[in-house]
């Protein structure tokens, strides 16, 4: 009995040694690949994974002078502060509302434009229109919001038309909080509607022309063809895009909204991301801001994963 155990453990250590030898040999064989990969791996460690350990700030009362190890451990206190803070609920509400407005108004427009472009008979006209409507996608948010401000400010051209030509009162588009969300949605439509058509145009290009021919022979009009031939062809793309968009409802366009915020509209305009900046960087409440960010990241992760598995259930490959 004793000798058997000895033999057994001897085999195990032998196996460990051969495993170790194999791994070492493998490392030696891959040495150049590791050399090549090293800068990239270092990047992921320093700028992606070290910050994840920095999330421990959320469980501290962080004091920059004492550092992470010197600051007091407060457990879930910062999260309790989130739950007790009415400001957070307002910010969360703004985030969700802006996202849903985007889905309601900005999401369908690329589909409509793609269907309309698809109906164009003249390839030259089609390419011209595509070239123009893709352009705003490449402009920076500073430029887009800047142009918007120039058009909509008090002495801007829109108010010039309202007061000068139509004899109405000037409208404070940029400072009246009730205009904030519509402006944000309109900017996204202006910037991204054209670009968003690409993915739908690609699935429209796959439609068999014979379907159109037989529909014509059956006496279907243009609208009937769009309804019975074109839309079914892009239905799965629409569903997938919608699901994926739902997965990122907590992202409501940080760069854009940050530019749009001013003291007058902060109440209605502040979203989760900008709130993290305001609290963390401007007011130096690092721990609280980190906790808000962690909350957003965790909920976002759950949403994206659910969206993805939902997309898979619709028979698509999913993204991850």
């Amino acid at each position: 009995m004793e000798s058997r155990t000895n033999v057994y453990s001897g085999q195990a250590s032998m196996e460990r040694i051969t495993w170790w030898n194999r791994t070492r040999r493998r490392w030696w064989k891959d040495r150049y690949l590791f050399l090549i990969a090293f800068p990239g791996i270092l990047f992921y460690i320093v700028f992606k994974y070290v910050p994840m350990f920095g999330l421990s700030l959320a469980f501290l009362d962080f004091n920059p002078f004492l550092g992470i190890s010197g600051s007091e451990w407060t457990g879930w206190d910062n999260f309790r502060r989130i739950i007790d803070n009415p400001e957070v609920y307002r910010v969360l509400w703004n985030t969700l509302l802006i996202s849903f407005l985007q889905i309601l108004f900005a999401f369908p427009i690329p589909i409509l434009l793609a269907v309309m472009l698809n109906e164009l008979r003249n390839d030259f006209v089609k390419r011209m229109i595509q070239s123009i409507i893709y352009l705003p996608h490449f402009l920076s948010w500073v430029v887009v919001v800047g142009i918007c401000f120039i058009f909509f400010r008090g002495e801007g051209i829109i108010n010039g038309v309202l007061t000068g030509w139509l004899g109405l009162d000037a409208v404070p588009f940029l400072t009246d909080p009730s205009f904030f969300k519509p402006m944000v949605v309109a900017q996204v439509i202006w910037k991204e509607a054209g670009w968003g058509t690409i993915i739908f145009l690609a699935s429209l290009a796959a439609v068999n022309p014979e379907l159109h021919e037989s529909a014509t022979i059956d006496g279907a009009g243009r609208f009937q063809q769009i309804w019975h031939v074109v839309l079914p062809a892009i239905r799965s793309t629409i569903v997938i895009m919608l699901i994926l968009r739902l997965g990122s409802v907590l992202d409501s366009g940080f760069e854009q909204i940050f530019l749009m915020l001013n003291p007058f509209n902060r109440e209605t305009g502040e979203v989760l991301d900008t709130y993290v900046f305001t609290k963390g960087i401007e007011s130096s409440d690092y721990s609280f801001a980190t906790a808000v960010g962690l909350f957003k990241g965790a909920v976002g992760l759950i949403l994206v994963l659910s969206a993805n598995s939902l997309a898979k259930r619709f028979g698509e490959e999913g993204v991850y």
Binding site: K48, P51, M52, F53, G54, L55, L57, D273, V276, F277, G280, I281, Y286, A289, T290, G293, L294, K296, G297, A298, G300, L301, V304, L305, Y320
Partner: peptide, 8 residues
């Protein structure tokens, strides 16, 4: 899928 966020 998940990033540590702005502050960390």
């Amino acid at each position: 899928l998940f990033s540590a966020g702005m502050i960390p």
